[in-house]
């Protein structure tokens, strides 16, 4: 018995040692980035592994004054909130119909929507550039150009998550609404939507982050002078390539707010990311 116990505690130690190793591999690059943001340029070249000496705020100040990060933050904020609202306004009624109504073609239609989750968006870069650039909708270079693609490609996952929530609504409640004289729209609006609030929170947070982090469409469809956070970051890297400290400050300004959001919204984010997968 005693021998058994010492062996388990050895395993216990080894397990934590391995986990700590992975923790260092995951977290150290981020720590290194934040430290680099507080260095002077020469310090970063000569002693990249030591603590900053001296510590300085000047990189952050310079990012704010020289880069277009103020605009980028504002752009991303407007673009993503608008697109999230629109994607839910469109997807929620459809998800309700798919969950609660029987009608011809519902299987085929739902499958058509689901496919959008699995196709690489890059297939549509060239035609969307034509449609939004010089085709019917001349939006090239304006932020509006991104709303359509963002909403279009957010619809499948939004519908999948919301349909799950609407399908779980208690039947009695819907019947009660019907007896009280609610229309289908009334039931959706006044009974289903309030109950589905947790799922709505998941969709809002998840879609917002997906759009916030999107790169390929922004790169293709935005003209000069317009930018979003990921695009601004890659451009900033291009312009200040040799100044590790400056780019690290910009990176920190992008990443740290996201990590803070993550700590509070972890549950929703993980649920959103696994929703496409965990459907037996």
């Amino acid at each position: 018995m005693k021998k058994h116990r010492t062996r388990t505690s050895g395993a216990f130690l080894l397990r934590h040692l391995l986990l700590l190793t992975f923790l260092v591999i995951t977290a150290y690059p981020l720590l290194w980035m934040v430290l680099a943001a507080f260095r002077l340029e020469g310090d970063a070249q000569l002693r990249p592994l030591a603590l900053p000496a001296p510590w300085t705020w000047q990189n952050f100040a310079q990012v704010f004054t020289s880069g277009s990060f103020g605009d980028a933050y504002l752009n991303s904020l407007m673009l993503c909130s608008g697109s999230v609202l629109l994607s839910i306004a469109l997807a929620a009624p459809a998800a309700f119909a798919f969950a609660q109504c029987r009608f011809r073609g519902r299987h085929a239609l739902f499958m058509l929507f689901l496919l959008g989750m699995m196709i690489p968006v890059h297939v549509t870069l060239i035609p969307l550039n034509r449609l939004l650039g010089n085709g019917a909708l001349n939006l090239k270079g304006s932020l509006w150009a991104l709303v359509g693609p963002y909403v279009g490609f957010a619809l499948p996952i939004t519908m999948l998550i919301l349909r799950g929530a609407f399908a779980a609504l208690p039947r009695d409640l819907l019947d009660a609404g019907r007896i009280d004289g609610c229309s289908t729209w009334g039931i959706f609006r006044h009974i289903a939507m309030p109950i589905a609030r947790p799922a709505l929170a998941t969709v809002v947070i998840f879609n917002f982050l997906t759009m916030w982090n999107e790169f390929a469409f922004a790169l293709t469809l935005l003209g000069p002078g317009q930018t979003t956070i990921p695009l601004a970051l890659s451009q900033f890297k291009g312009e200040h390539d040799v100044q590790i400290t400056l780019v690290s400050a910009a990176l920190s300004l992008v990443v740290i707010p996201l990590l803070i959001v993550y700590v509070f919204a972890q549950k929703h984010i993980i649920r959103g990311l696994t929703a496409g997968a965990v459907k037996e």
Binding site: T26, A27, P29, L30, M33, L209, W212, N213, F215, I229, P230, L231, L233, S234, K237, V247, L251, V254, V255, L258, L259, V261, Y262, Q266, I269, I270, L273
Partner: peptide, 14 residues
């Protein structure tokens, strides 16, 4: 799980 939160563009730059 934290790296999943970063924009891929930020991961690339880092």
């Amino acid at each position: 799980f934290a790296p999943m939160m970063m924009p891929t563009a930020a991961i690339a730059v880092l």
